[in-house]
C-alpha cells in the first residue's frame, strides 16, 4: 500500500518537478517518520515549488512563513493579544498551528527567530507566555535555504536547529534531458494547480503504523551506532552526530526499507540514507573545513565502517 501511495506521490509531484524521483522518496520517508526536511540548494532549483507541491499532495492544513531578518519569534509561535471587546488577552497562535509549515529561506531570519522553531519541531508543542499548547499531528516543517548566500544578510542555522531536521536534501541541478522536459512542462502558467491531493492525514497515519511494524535487528542497530560513533572521533570533525541523530538514522533506515517494499531493515538501507541524515549534523573542525566537506567526511565514514554481513555456515563452523 505504501508503494502505491509513493508512486501516486511521484506522479503528482512529477507534474511540476522533473527528475526528482529520489528526492520524492526521501520526502516520503520523512513524512512517514514525522521528520522535518531542510531543502538546500542554489536559487532556482525548485525548492519552494517542491515544498508547496508536497504540502498540496499531503492534504491537511498548510502555512508558509517567508523568513526575513525582521521576523520575530512571536511571529512564528504566536502571542496573547488584548481584545478590547472582551477586555481579555486572547491567544493567537502563529503559523506553527498547522500540519505543514513551509519555512522559506529560513537562514534569512536571525538565530533568535530561528530558535523559536526548536520546541515545536522537537516536541510538537509551543509555549506562549509560559503556557504550553500542543500542536496537532502530523506537524512537518519543510524549510528551504540557499547555501550560496551564507554571508549576505543571512544567518547560519544553529547546530541545535540543524539537528532537528530529519533529512537535509540537496536538490542540485537537473540533467540535460530533465531540463528539456522541464521546459515542456512549464509552457503553462498554471502547472501548480494541476497537482492534486494524494494522501490524507488518515492514510499517513496508516503508513506510519506500517512503518512501526518493520523489523530492525541488533546487528543493524549496532551498525547505526558504529556510524554515529565514528562521526564523534573523526579527525576532521569538531562536533559529531548526537544521540538524536542515532534515532533519526534508525527511523530513516526503517523508512527506506518501507519504500523498498521490505518488512526488515538491511545495512544497505542505512548506508543509503546515512548521508541525508548525518551530513548536516556534523561540524567540521578548522582543518576539515579547508581540505574536505561534510558529504565527503560522511562518505569516508561509510567506507571505513565495517558493514555487517550475514556469515555463512563455514563461519559458524569456524
Amino acid at each position: 500500500m505504501a508503494l502505491t501511495y509513493l508512486n501516486d506521490l511521484k506522479k503528482e509531484i512529477g507534474k511540476v518537478i522533473v527528475g526528482q524521483e529520489e528526492v520524492i522518496d526521501l520526502i516520503f520517508i520523512s513524512i512517514v517518520q514525522k521528520g522535518h526536511i531542510l531543502f538546500e540548494s542554489v536559487p532556482g532549483t525548485g525548492k519552494t515549488v517542491l515544498s508547496k507541491s508536497v504540502s498540496k499532495v499531503m492534504g491537511g492544513t498548510f502555512s508558509r512563513v517567508q523568513f526575513t531578518p525582521d521576523v520575530l519569534p512571536t511571529d512564528i509561535t504566536g502571542m496573547n493579544i488584548y481584545n478590547p471587546k472582551t477586555k481579555e488577552f486572547e491567544l493567537q497562535l502563529g503559523p506553527v498551528k498547522t500540519n505543514i509549515l513551509l519555512a522559506d529561506e529560513i537562514n534569512r531570519a536571525t538565530p533568535r527567530t530561528q530558535s523559536a522553531l526548536l520546541e515545536v519541531m522537537e516536541e510538537g508543542q509551543v509555549t506562549v507566555d509560559g503556557k504550553t499548547y500542543p500542536i496537532e499531528e502530523p506537524f512537518i516543517v519543510l524549510a528551504t535555504q540557499n547555501p550560496i548566500e551564507s554571508k549576505q544578510g543571512t544567518f547560519d542555522l544553529p547546530e541545535a536547529q540543524m539537528d532537528r531536521f530529519f533529512l537535509k536534501i540537496d536538490l542540485g541541478y537537473p540533467s540535460f534531458e530533465n531540463e528539456r522536459l522541464m521546459l515542456d512542462l512549464h509552457r503553462s502558467n498554471h502547472i501548480q494547480e494541476s497537482v492534486s491531493q494524494v494522501l490524507t492525514l488518515e492514510t499517513i497515519k496508516e503508513i506510519q503504523n506500517m512503518a512501526e511494524k518493520i523489523e530492525i535487528n541488533d546487528t543493524v542497530k549496532d551498525y547505526i551506532i558504529n556510524l554515529v560513533h565514528h562521526t564523534r572521533r573523526h579527525e576532521h570533525i569538531e562536533l559529531g552526530a548526537s544521540p538524536r541523530a542515532t534515532i533519526a538514522l534508525m527511523r530513516a533506515g526503517i523508512g527506506t526499507a518501507l519504500i523498498n517494499g521490505r518488512d526488515y531493515v538491511t545495512p544497505d538501507d542505512v548506508k543509503y540514507i546515512a548521508p541525508y541524515v548525518l551530513s548536516h549534523r556534523i561540524v567540521l573542525n578548522i582543518e576539515g573545513m579547508t581540505v574536505t566537506n561534510n558529504d565527503e567526511v560522511i562518505d569516508s565514514i561509510l567506507n571505513k565502517t565495517e558493514v555487517p554481513v550475514e556469515y555463512g555456515v563455514s563461519r559458524d563452523e569456524v
Binding site: 551564507s150 554571508k151 567540521l284 578548522i286 573545513m289 579547508t290
Partner: peptide
C-alpha cells in the same frame, strides 16, 4: 573581509 572557517578556506 570576512571571518569564519569558510573564509579561512577561501584565503588558503
Amino acid at each position: 573581509e570576512s571571518s569564519g572557517k569558510s573564509h579561512y578556506k577561501t584565503t588558503l
